[in-house]
Amino acid sequence: MRWLKENALALAFLVMFLLAVGGQAVAGLLQFNDTQLAEGGEPISFFRYVASSSFAVDVAENWQSEYLQFFLFIMLTVWLVQKGSPESKRPGREGAESDEEQQIGRHAEAGSPAWARVGGLRLWLFSNSLGLVMGGVFVLSWLAQSVAGQAAYNSERLGDLRDPVSWWSYVTSAEFWNRSLQNWQSELLAVLSMVALSIYLRQRGSPESKPVGAPHSATGVEG
């Protein structure tokens, strides 16, 4: 019970993720089969649908944009600040910060991770591991979107009695960039809203907000 309580946030998001992706699969299957029947085809099974390029591209295009959003947020907040936002460091602290501030090398503390105590490649990797993983998942998801997207797009083109296109033609096509940019714009707007609105608005008890009584000008203060 204590373990559940201490991990409630991650578990809640995991359960919501599984419900949402399951719901997407069911709704996507119904829509796909509706189109199949309208075009003279046959409905397909749930398992064939979740293994199809149509489902894969819909999942991947959303994943890549979410991981891009967090990758950019993580990396840009190293160097850029926003006065008054709890999502930002205080002005004047831009950059990678000192070893003392980051508790690495001889400044490591008793509970510091092992790779924070060592130097060289391991310290560099651990110091950038969050950005590397987020950026890596973004690149792989975007690549997956391009591969699955080409397959889904070519299936549609053949259905329209048109020639299929190469991977390169697909990743330079309006279809690919429309799918990518429509996701990116919404993610960037959401981050902009979070950074800007949290200057003036509060959510009592949330660490994503400043304390209710904190001044609007207070930066990097979380409640």
Binding site: A51, S52, A56, V57, S141, V147, Q150
Partner: peptide, 10 residues
């Protein structure tokens, strides 16, 4: 995800 994409790409 990439493996799924490759598997579905024919």
């Amino acid at each position: 995800m990439l493996a799924l994409a490759l598997a579905t790409a024919g």
